[in-house]
Amino acid sequence: MSTLSTLEVNSLKGALEALLLVSSDPVSAPALAGALDIAPGECASLLAELKVEYEEANRGFQLREVAGGWRLFTHPAYHDVVEAYVLSWDTQKLSQAALETLAVIAYHQPVTREVVKGIRGVNSDGVIASLVDKGLVRELGRDPERGQAIIYGTTNAFLEKFGLRSTRDLPDLEQFAPDEQSRQFIRERLSGRSIQSTLEEQAEDLDEERELLDTDVEDTDGEELLPAGVTSEDMHDED
């Protein structure tokens, strides 16, 4: 490679670094290539070279491909230093309820609020709204089979925050299960069978409550209401 070519390559790498530094979101290789007026394949090769160079030089930052694009990140080895420096980090932490809800949506998307409730066993509307506000979850549309209920899914910000290129990179939850029974439970939850069963059980409970109410109404039809403390036998004695 000639000196001129080397300078051109280094200049392109420098330009890529400048673009990545001013980008708050991951940028795709084709978008970067368009900004530099080079072929997407050449841009992808330069990005891969930069990634290796940073790793070999043990720099304080890394170049990663996440959420369909490229972005610079601080090196995990310096996490404690960065965390101590950025005092506002605590305000960005998610609660246990938020993490549970986010996991349900991530692994079962597209999903409605009713399905999330069926899995967690508690109303999660407020938590979902909070995740939407944080930009980790978004509305994908409506489910015509469930009364036009809103369907939710994760965002690119979610992928970026957890260092994923796509939802296909989510870890297999079964690997965290301590035994086969737990693994089977996870399979059922992710397949939706248990969710549907939960919804059906809730519907059956409502039907039973309605039947009991109807029975109570029928039992009281035609009966004369008596004053408190007075029985029907007392009324017969008076006769």
Results as ranks from 00 to 15, higher is better:
111 V>F: 05
225 L>E: 15
178 P>Y: 06
97 A>H: 00
237 D>P: 03
211 E>I: 06
103 A>H: 07
183 R>P: 09
36 L>I: 04
19 L>N: 01
64 R>F: 06
145 E>V: 09
129 A>K: 13
65 E>C: 13
75 H>Q: 14
99 L>E: 12
17 E>S: 13
21 L>A: 10
234 D>S: 00
87 L>G: 15
217 V>I: 13
186 I>G: 10
78 Y>C: 11
238 E>S: 06
3 T>V: 10
210 R>H: 13
236 H>G: 01
63 L>A: 12
62 Q>W: 12
47 L>M: 04
102 L>C: 05
229 G>A: 02
202 Q>M: 09
144 P>M: 14
168 R>Y: 15
54 Y>G: 05
106 A>N: 09
133 D>L: 10
44 A>K: 02
184 Q>G: 06
99 L>W: 10
237 D>E: 14
223 E>I: 13
2 S>D: 15
203 A>C: 06
75 H>V: 08
59 R>A: 15
210 R>A: 15
203 A>D: 10
67 A>E: 05
96 Q>E: 13
178 P>L: 05
237 D>Y: 06
195 I>L: 08
1 M>R: 11
128 I>K: 09
151 I>N: 11
158 F>H: 01
18 A>P: 00
122 V>W: 05
153 G>Q: 13
200 E>G: 07
11 S>M: 05
117 K>I: 03
108 H>K: 15
195 I>T: 15
83 E>M: 12
145 E>R: 14
159 L>Q: 06
215 T>S: 12
84 A>Y: 11
11 S>Q: 02
21 L>E: 12
24 S>H: 04
55 E>T: 03
105 I>M: 04
5 S>R: 07
44 A>S: 08
150 I>P: 01
105 I>K: 02
8 E>Y: 02
149 A>V: 12
44 A>H: 02
131 L>S: 00
71 R>D: 02
41 G>Y: 07
16 L>C: 04
138 R>Y: 05
99 L>Q: 14
184 Q>C: 07
23 S>L: 01
46 L>R: 04
235 M>K: 04
124 S>R: 15
114 E>V: 14
113 R>L: 15
157 A>Q: 03
134 K>W: 03
184 Q>K: 14
223 E>Y: 07
208 E>W: 05
108 H>A: 12
60 G>K: 12
66 V>I: 14
41 G>C: 09
57 A>I: 08
88 S>N: 14
193 R>W: 06
221 D>C: 10
8 E>W: 00
222 G>K: 11
7 L>G: 07
63 L>H: 06
196 Q>V: 12
48 A>T: 09
156 N>R: 14
152 Y>H: 15
29 A>H: 00
68 G>T: 10
114 E>Y: 13
91 T>M: 08
129 A>G: 07
127 V>P: 02
210 R>M: 14
191 S>M: 09
146 R>Y: 11
140 L>Q: 02
50 L>R: 01
122 V>Q: 07
12 L>R: 01
10 N>V: 11
138 R>N: 05
116 V>T: 06
107 Y>E: 11
106 A>C: 07
39 A>I: 07
151 I>W: 11
21 L>K: 12
18 A>I: 08
103 A>V: 13
7 L>R: 00
